[in-house]
Design a protein around this nucleic acid. Structure first.
Length: 591
RNA sequence: GGUUCGGUAGCUCAGCUGGAUAGAGCAUCAGCCUUCUAAGCUGAGGGUCAUUGGUUCGAAUCCAAUCCGAAUCACCA
């Protein structure tokens, strides 16, 4: 149990003993005491004033005395300022917390709770390489999965690959028309980039053909339909669905190239999945559910044979769920896949990490599932995140303003190398150690940068100002860890003993922050928000760094002081390392 | 037009289940390396929390209206 919970129970208990006979709990707030006042935690008394019909000062006095009398091991002193009861926690409490947990690598993690969650993220298209937006998605998905694990869930990471459809045929057609047999090998290109180039090529040609048609008198809408390259693409999609061997072969070949490229990218960012779904296998799913919906009269059929659901009563529109030719649409497939996930893994919750542009779609998905009375309907959760934008606006693949994932990762590593070399602290590193280090720092900076802001907000990425390595950044936290490590290396035989020292202000701040780790994990898990954790780790690092500069650890004033400070250092190192791990970020032993 | 989300320091963001004088980082300025790693530490300046009204002991936080921005409202996925 964390300290806020302890305080809450103690206060509730004392209120009951002092003022109430019945069991009705009064609501009160516990805050961290502001630095300008004396104390650790603060009970806000105003909410009690009305119910107890006493002045805040009197409640504070009585409550404070009762708390100390009843819980002398927890509360040391108290003071009352206006309506605030500031409580100081005993050094004994902090010291025993520290002694017990300083070397516990599981500190802050929860026991398994028996629930199973699937987190779906990444969801790439196989017609172009991953970009910065995918990175935010990947890092978020990964981190949320890890955070959920740490708070007691069994987690499955899954990925749905959009490997079929008109957009895939576009790059296939362009390759067929313009590649002249070129391959990733023959051009020395990474497969996903190679295929992506033909997707761009398609759009260039398509645009030119539209312009030509418009110039010769077509309307824009007609031109878009009649452009020869688009017609070929439509034909190819039909051939694909019919299973024409040539087309299937080409499709497999080009997708193979893309997967090779993706593998490299995923490996380089440290991402993987427990289960990968392919849309080419799932796009027919959901049709039986449509039938079921018709029988339950949740759906209805129009004269032309298309099937719809009316969501106007819920403030949405009428949505198509099956085309008149009997083929399924996006939403139908998604309902089918949701069912498959549930049937296959018996999951208690299904989290979809998808951009906020799909808020409407996901709302419809959940609503349809609910109306159909599907058992997992309420457990569908859309973790919606904002787009990554450039200072100039949205990234557009057609305008070449996309920040490529491989490029940015490479750039971050290079920047890490450059910074490190400038500082000149790694002269004794082996070559392969250096490569690891640059990767750890570069990726750490990148991941932290994308995870430190609230996922649901859109964020602006300025490629001109490269990602920082100072201040509120991944490397700052990594550096703090490396410094601690450098101290601990000198104390290989350290064995903690109970301390008789009292905490100095900066020492107290560190243990105070450390205590919160478990609560922070729980909050990040509850809100599916890694930025809570990122902010916490930064805050903890700052507090440790202040302590570190002010007080010597290795040459402490006494052996007992040293014992206490090494415990503080060890526990900080553990929390930083485990916390960063939950963000998908490694920490180096030296940097 | 409907729906949803957002607007806090020059910039990027915390804080939003109402609580004490609104916080970080970057940038700017001034200090700190002969002692555990200066990717660090200490300090200064910088705010009409979009606007207006309401709720209350108390509002950046809740409510309403307005202004600005974004997403979405496809027989695309």
């Amino acid at each position: 149990m964390n300290i806020v919970q302890l305080i809450r129970e103690a206060v509730a208990d004392s209120i009951k003993n002092l003022y109430l006979e019945s069991d009705n709990n009064l609501d009160f707030q516990i805050n961290q005491t502001k630095p300008e006042f004396e104390g650790d935690y603060t009970i806000v008394l105003f909410s009690l004033v009305k119910a107890l019909k006493k002045s805040p000062e009197m409640i504070g006095q009585e409550l404070g005395e009762a708390l100390i009398k009843k819980n002398p091991e927890l509360f040391d002193t108290f003071n009352i300022i206006k309506g605030f009861l500031n409580l100081t926690i005993t050094d004994a409490y902090w010291k025993s917390l520290l002694l017990k947990n300083h070397n516990d690598i599981c500190f802050g993690k929860q026991a398994m709770n028996g629930e199973k969650v699937m987190v779906e993220y990444s969801s790439p298209n196989t017609n172009k390489p991953l970009h910065l937006g995918h990175l935010r998605n990947n890092f978020l998905g990964w981190s949320v999965a890890e955070i959920l694990k740490a708070s007691g869930y069994e987690v499955l990471k899954s990925c749905i690959v959009n490997d079929r459809g008109i957009h895939i045929c576009k790059s296939m057609i362009a390759w067929q028309l313009y590649a002249d047999g070129a391959t990733p090998e023959s051009t020395h290109k990474k497969g996903d980039h190679f295929v992506g180039d033909y997707y761009v090529k398609f759009n260039d040609v398509y645009k030119a053909q539209i312009a030509e048609l418009i110039a010769s008198g077509s309307t824009e809408a007609d031109a878009e339909k009649q452009a020869p390259i688009m017609q070929k693409t439509q034909q190819m999609l039909q051939d694909w669905e019919a299973g024409v061997p040539d087309v299937m072969q080409l499709w497999q070949k080009m997708n193979g190239w893309v997967y090779e490229g993706f593998d490299v990218t995923y490996k380089s960012i440290g991402s993987n999945f427990d289960k990968t779904y392919y849309e080419s296998n799932t796009y027919l799913l959901g049709k039986d559910i449509v039938q079921e919906g018709l029988e339950k009269k949740v759906f209805y059929k129009k004269e032309d044979g298309s099937v719809w659901i009316d969501l106007t009563a819920d403030g949405l529109d009428e949505k198509l769920v099956l085309r008149k030719d009997g083929t399924s649409v996006y939403i139908t497939q998604d309902i089918g896949l949701a069912k498959q996930k549930y049937d296959e893994y018996k999951i208690d919750q299904s989290i979809y990490v998808i951009g906020d542009e799909q808020n409407y779609h996901m709302k419809v998905l959940k609503l349809i599932a609910q109306k159909l009375g599907l058992p997992y309907a309420d457990d569908i959760y859309h973790l919606s995140y904002g787009m990554v934008e450039l200072p100039t606006g949205k990234m557009k693949s057609r305008e070449g303003t996309v920040v490529d994932a491989d490029d940015i990762v490479a750039e971050m590593k290079a920047t890490a190398q450059q910074h490190t070399e400038t500082l000149g602290k790694v002269k004794d590193f082996e070559a392969n150690e250096l490569i690891d280090l640059y990767e750890t720092i570069g990726l750490g900076a990148m991941k932290f940068y994308l995870l430190r802001v609230d996922p649901k907000k859109k964020m602006i990425f300025n490629p001109e100002e490269s990602i920082d390595f100072h201040g509120f950044t991944g490397p700052f936290i990594q550096y703090t860890f490396a410094r601690i490590n450098s101290i601990l290396r000198k104390e290989p035989n350290f064995k903690a003993t109970p301390s008789n020292e009292t905490f100095l202000k900066l020492e107290k701040e560190v243990i105070y922050n450390l205590e919160q780790f478990g609560g922070i994990i729980m909050e990040s898990a509850k809100t599916l928000n890694p930025s809570v954790l990122a902010n916490y780790l930064f805050h903890l690092s700052k507090s440790f760094n202040s302590f570190y500069t002010e007080h010597s650890i290795g040459n402490a004033e006494s052996e007992d002081k040293k014992n206490l400070r090494i415990q503080l250092s060890m526990m900080t190192a553990n929390v930083l390392k485990n916390g960063m791990q939950l963000l998908g970020i490694n920490v180096p032993n030296r940097m």
